[in-house]
């Protein structure tokens, strides 16, 4: 084998090992594949995905946030997606932008009517993309600079 072929052989070998490795991580039931989670709609959730780890996106229904009296970290809220909605339970630290109407992504497992989330992300702060404030909306005198 001449030296050029030797190197082509070695590099191809590396690439082959790599491809097998990517395939293995993507499909074998390890940590890596577990973190590849399907993003589904609430409609599909109730039919096909009970007890399976999935992701949902939607809006927090206005007035639906119920924070436990004894543990501020314990929260229930309704996640809206067009006409569908589902009850979500979450017990970890909530992002600062968590509030009524916020767009959130939750990850967890659906079981017996409740979506038990262990990951919750808020999407962009509407404040920074929304309407501009007008005078009536904001009292300038109160602002100290």
């Amino acid at each position: 084998m001449n030296s050029k072929n030797k190197f082509i052989f070695a590099v191809s070998g590396i690439i082959l090992v790599f491809v097998v490795w990517v395939y293995w991580v993507s499909t074998s039931p390890g940590e890596g594949a577990k973190s590849m989670v399907e993003f589904i709609s609430i409609e599909d959730l109730e039919d096909d995905y009970e007890n399976e780890r999935v992701r949902l996106g939607g809006l927090i229904q206005d007035g639906s946030i119920q924070i436990s009296e004894s543990n501020l970290l314990d929260v229930h809220f309704m996640l809206d997606q067009d006409d569908e909605s589902v009850k979500v339970h979450y017990t970890k630290t909530r992002p600062d932008l968590f509030k009524d109407g916020a767009e959130v992504i939750v990850e967890g497992v659906y079981n017996a009517g409740i979506f038990q989330a262990d990951m919750l992300q808020t999407k962009c702060a509407s404040r920074y993309e929304g309407d501009l404030r007008d005078e009536s909306d904001y009292n300038m005198d109160e602002v100290e600079i």
Partner: peptide, 17 residues
């Protein structure tokens, strides 16, 4: 189907590399 790929996937694949 929409699939999200989380940090554990990247960690597992990239740590050996």
């Amino acid at each position: 189907t929409k699939i999200t790929v989380g940090a554990p996937f990247f960690n597992q694949i990239n740590i050996p590399i």
